[in-house]
Design a protein around this nucleic acid. Structure first.
Length: 555
RNA sequence: UGGGGUGUAGCCAAGUGGUAAGGCAACGGGUUUUGAUCCCGUCAUUCGCAGGUUCGAUCCCUGCCACCCCAGCCA
């Protein structure tokens, strides 16, 4: 991770403020609504908010925006806390809720009424909609707009006391029905909801709207920079209207940045929920999803996610980040940290005709080729082995330097072998290879000058661990599935492949690493959410052979 | 067609009145018992387009074009 990266525009604004007034504090907040799980887009916001403050010795609140009891649930709040922590951020004692301020918010609403800046509207939702006008047509005043302050106070009190049913009345800010900014056309600030709230129970039957609650919660907490995504840009005048008219002690500043879009995936809570409800994926923590829970289960290290968020930057431009950027962050971290092992995903048996049936050698294999300090392990070797099906080709192209009839390859950390005979079943499918090994080519002995182009991985038939492995591919066929009217039709049918693999026996141990590289096959981890041991492929290795193959195919 | 935004390489992204950082991808080469890693090199005569100002414009001005967001008692 490079720390020489230039400052984004938000950091530039803040640092200029700090220069102008060094006594400034930096206080930020991450304000999720507890109505679903966090995803990579939230990770970007979390990283931004926490790091911007941390870099400047400031603080960051984790504040739940729990103003809509119908959608929210404590289980979501718990998962969000877990996710933020797992990503590596610490809100210390700054865990708050919009609902902590319900009393203050209620009082602020009363004060707005007293200043004739808010009124109770008895119009129906349809009437409200028709008064609002359109994008090109200004709205008209509600017939209830000029109610007296006393009447408004009385009605609002009765709203609070539960005298009206949901939707019957609404408290609105009195701003300007002719404003070209729709948000300023007398927006709702309190609505009636006879619904139990996850934290305040039945104490309230009126709940504040987002714009009102959010702006004031920021002010109450002394947030200095309220960082949010671009769709809230035209809410900013309203945000400031509340701050100005409620006359709060602190005046936070809202700054907007563009949300993250990741190619071939979805970063929208609503659409994610759709996939889950339709059972297209197996829950919020499905490893194919870029939810934090999904990525955690998939095996993505939090460091890699933070690195990714730093690399994509913060601007106001629309973007569609390539999947490769994320995967590369994962590879980069795991490449240096994950121990190496061997495992055969799709086994092909080979028998070494000239190796003593009763002999077993325990060969040394390095745990990491670049870091000898990580030690070695033993790999049992005998006359029956598994190699990868894809490492043998009966009719091999020129550049293919793995096994072919009559050809030689090295078995990693073992011997060079030659393919002597191909055994097939009645369907013509290759079922076994008879090979010979060259005893002079044992790894590390240097007794032979023989050089061979390819090195392949293997596992001893008699010393292998059967393992259930899941391979993942992108969930969508289209780079931008959110643009697609029918999401289901853009699903990649091959996004999940389950197979029965053969792993080296050292993995069948209590102290085996939970995350490791299967050489030439990618990075894997144990799926912690499964009772039975299953492995997830976190990410593949870079594969230039696949590239060559693809090019050859397209020619 | 009202309002608010955004346009710099395939994808991100700096920059600024003085001649276009960096990352990813791609491509070429080297090392390699992982076709991995690592290393070296190449990759924008041009900054959405058209005019104007200027010795000089990606940057300033004017006009245009494209794309994104907004009409919840969601956030």
């Amino acid at each position: 991770m490079s720390d020489i990266s230039p400052k984004d525009f938000i950091r530039q604004i803040i640092d200029q403020d700090l220069l102008d007034d060094p006594s400034c504090k930096v206080v930020t907040r991450f304000p999720p609504e507890p109505n679903g799980y966090l995803h990579l887009g939230h990770a970007k916001s979390i990283c931004l908010n926490f790091s911007v403050a941390d870099e400047r010795k400031g603080i960051t609140y984790l504040r739940f925006d729990d103003t809509n009891p119908i959608k929210e649930d404590a289980v979501f709040a718990e998962s969000i806390k877990k996710d933020v922590q797992w990503l590596g951020f610490d809100w210390q004692d700054k865990l708050t809720h919009a609902s902590d301020y319900f009393d203050e918010l209620h009082q602020a609403a009363i004060n707005l009424i007293k200043k004739d800046l808010a009124y109770v509207d008895s119009s129906s939702p349809d009437e409200l909609k028709s008064y609002r006008g359109s994008l090109t047509k200004s709205g008209i005043n509600s017939p209830y707009r000029d109610r007296s302050i006393e009447e408004n106070l009385d009605l609002f009190a009765r709203m609070k006391n539960g005298e009206f049913s949901d939707g019957e009345m609404i408290l609105r800010a009195k701003i300007d029905m002719k404003s070209p900014n729709m948000n300023l056309r007398d927006p709702a600030i309190y609505r009636i909801r006879h619904h139990q709230h996850q934290r305040t129970g039945n104490a309230w039957c009126i709940y504040p709207m987002y714009d009102f609650a959010h702006a004031l919660s920021d002010a109450f907490e002394g947030i200095t920079y309220s960082l949010c995504t671009l769709e809230f840009e035209d809410h900013r005048p309203l945000y400031n209207w509340f701050i100005d008219n409620v006359k709060t002690e602190h005046q936070p500043r809202q700054i907007e940045f563009s949300r993250l879009n990741l190619a071939y995936s979805l970063t929208s809570k609503r659409k994610l929920k759709d996939l889950i409800d339709k059972k297209i994926v197996n829950g919020w923590d499905d490893p194919r999803l870029v939810t934090i829970a999904g990525m955690r289960r998939r095996g993505y290290p939090p460091v890699a996610i933070r690195d990714f968020c730093q690399r994509v930057g913060v601007t106001k431009k629309d973007n569609l980040i390539e999947m490769g950027v994320l995967e590369n962050c994962v590879r980069e971290y795991l490449g240096d940290t994950a121990q190496r092992r061997m495992g055969v995903l799709k086994p092909l048996k080979i028998t070494l005709s000239n190796y003593d049936k009763n002999q077993i050698e325990n060969l040394d294999a390095q745990n990491h080729p670049n870091f000898p300090d990580l030690g070695t392990r033993k790999m049992p070797f005998c006359n029956e082995l598994y190699i990868e099906q894809s490492d043998f080709l009966e009719e091999a192209p020129k550049k293919f330097f793995r096994l072919k009839p009559g050809g030689e390859v090295r078995l990693r950390y073992a011997y060079i072998i030659r393919c002597e005979k191909v055994i097939k079943n009645s369907d013509g499918k290759v079922t076994e290879l008879i090979c010979s090994y060259d005893p002079d080519t044992k790894s590390g002995t240097g007794t032979s000058e023989k050089k061979v182009k390819g090195t392949i991985h293997w596992v001893s038939v008699r010393h292998s661990l059967d393992a259930k492995i899941r391979l993942y591919d992108r969930l969508f066929k289209l780079p931008n599935p959110s643009n697609c009217e029918d999401i289901e039709s853009s699903i990649n049918p091959n996004s999940l492949e389950t197979l029965q693999a053969k792993l080296e026996i050292s993995l069948d141990s209590e102290d085996a690493p939970a995350v490791f590289q299967l050489e030439r096959n990618g990075y894997f981890c144990i799926d912690k959410e499964e009772k039975e041991t299953k492995y997830n492929r976190i990410v593949t290795l870079r594969d230039s052979w696949a590239k060559i193959e693809k090019q050859a195919l397209s020619q």
